[in-house]
């Protein structure tokens, strides 16, 4: 039967925007994702994309303050993982411009490549943002399934 697509499993994580949590956040999502039996490369892709999104919350959204970061992840029977990273920080005035490779408001140590990396390491990335309200980045990737459980 093919009805509404219901996640096979879900997780939620709320963390303060401390830079020490960058490694924790990507490791947590990677551990959750391991239920899909991904390759090392697929796992690295998601870890890298999550690291970029979480870093942006820490560096940009909550530039001079500590705020909350919400991370929601879901995996589906068809091998997809969807990760949503949300902040209630400063927001992005022009999302199209922010997504351009090399665009940064972050100074000389930022490469301006976070969105380019998220885009190229996933199958789909969407960005919703409102100035003064916050930003939500959604990352989606399909993991090649080497065997299926049909139960």
């Amino acid at each position: 039967m093919r009805g509404k697509v219901i996640p096979q499993n879900e997780m939620k994580l709320v963390i303060p925007s401390r830079s020490a949590n960058e490694s924790f956040a990507r490791a947590a999502v990677a551990a959750f994702m391991s239920q899909l039996d991904p390759t090392v490369e697929e796992m690295t892709d998601i870890k890298t994309a999550v690291s970029e999104a979480v870093t942006n919350c820490i560096v940009h959204a909550y530039r001079d303050t500590i705020g909350k970061i919400w991370i929601d992840a879901a995996i589906y029977d068809d091998g997809r993982i969807v990760v949503q990273i949300k902040d209630k920080g400063c927001g992005i005035p022009d999302v199209a411009q922010a997504r351009q490779p090399l665009f940064t408001t972050g100074g000389s140590e930022r490469a301006g490549l976070g969105f380019a990396v998220m885009e190229s390491f996933t199958d789909r990335m969407t960005v919703r943002s409102a100035v003064g309200k916050g930003t939500t980045v959604t990352l989606e990737k399909r993991v090649a399934q080497r065997y299926r459980h049909d139960s």
Binding site: R26, T44, K47, T48, S51, E52, T55, S108, E109, R110, A111, L113, G114, A116, V117
Partner: peptide, 16 residues
């Protein structure tokens, strides 16, 4: 073992 785009920033800064 892992590097995101912050590593690129690190390299570019040292390059300059």
């Amino acid at each position: 073992g892992f590097m995101d785009s912050s590593g690129i920033g690190l390299i570019m800064g040292r390059f300059q």
